[in-house]
Computed example of a mutant assay.
Amino acid sequence: MRARKRVVVAINPNAAFGRGREVGPAVVTTLRGLGHEVVSLTELDFPQLLDATRRALTEKPDALVVVGGDGMVALGVMALEGSRIPLGIVPSGTGNDVCRGLGIPVDDAEAAIRMLAEQLDVPPRVIDAGTIAHATGETRFACILSAGFDALVNERANRMRFPRGRSRYTLALLVELAKLRPIEYTLELDGETRVERALLVAVANNLSFGGGMKVAPDAKLDDGLFDVVLVKPLSRLQFLRIYPRVFAGTHVGDPRVIVHRASRVSVAAAGVVAYADGERVAPLPVTATVDARSLRVLAPTP
């Protein structure tokens, strides 16, 4: 007989620019139909939803489920800091890269909900998370901290008021490509300092970001280490040639792509804002530390 669970469901109704609006109610309806006690949370913005989630977690539910994209996963990771409550994820965003890494279906909401319901009845998987220390505090993340070309594109897209949707990101990418230039970074990898000129630095707990771009194809969610990916200076033509290879993860075979592994990574550079799990964090410098086996997730064991 299925055990009755108390579940908090935090929903982003604007995931995928509103196209995933029906997924949250479907999660709540399914879980209630299975006999679980469900608290459903929807707020006007991220800070209010985070606060509401943290309050709901003081009642010690059996699970927190987030419905949305990687930003909602980040909300769950932050809300669960220091907790043993497991995190369930039903993807309805544009990227959904944490789900890709966990083996949760990203293109079939019904399949993802079925998997969630099944995982509520088995022990959770335990994975790493990360903590980013920056000038204004700390931010937790589960996927990838980025500080380079992709972060510059995100920063420009967020400042643009037109066009809306994914086309805004595409336009921002074209503008930044026209301005493509290497950045001088000061990195500290487990205490070893190095200065590098690169187009991109990604501190990866997961293998992909940006909706399936396998920037760190060998990254593991539970090995206690970040994969730190550097893309050395390239011309625009060279960049355009290597860029499609990121979706297959074959770019790491190029000698201009360097991968280090470390559990504590500091990144400093002028004029660059760090992003993590698709959300703005803070201007560099930042320091990311692996929180090994600190996050329980409702996902199948590989």
Rank of each mutant, 00 (worst) to 15 (best):
A178S: 13
L87P: 09
A178M: 09
V153T: 03
A63K: 06
R114W: 07
Q48M: 11
R168K: 15
M160R: 10
P47D: 06
I127W: 12
A112M: 06
T170G: 01
H134E: 03
I144L: 09
G71T: 10
G95L: 02
D51G: 13
T139L: 09
A56M: 06
A142P: 10
V65M: 04
T94Q: 01
V106Q: 04
V67G: 04
C143F: 05
D121S: 14
D121V: 08
V66A: 11
C143N: 15
L80P: 08
S167F: 14
E155Q: 14
P86Y: 09
R125K: 13
D108L: 05
A56Y: 07
G82S: 09
D97Q: 10
V66C: 11
I104F: 13
S146N: 13
A135S: 14
A79E: 02
I113R: 07
A172W: 00
I127Y: 12
Q48G: 14
L173N: 02
N154E: 10
S146M: 07
L49P: 07
L102N: 08
V98G: 04
D70E: 11
S92R: 10
G88D: 05
M78N: 14
F162C: 02
T53Y: 03
N154W: 01
Y169W: 07
D108Q: 05
L145Y: 00
S83W: 03
D121C: 10
G71W: 12
V73R: 11
E176M: 01
P91A: 06
A151M: 01
A79G: 02
M160D: 07
F162R: 14
A178V: 04
R100G: 06
G88P: 04
R114N: 11
G69P: 08
S92A: 15
R125D: 08
M115Q: 15
L57N: 02
R168F: 00
I104V: 15
T136R: 15
I113F: 09
R164I: 04
L80H: 11
L57S: 00
R84F: 09
I89R: 08
R140Q: 13
R159S: 14
A172D: 01
R84K: 14
A151H: 01
P86W: 10
G148T: 02
S83P: 00
G69T: 10
V106K: 03
D70S: 10
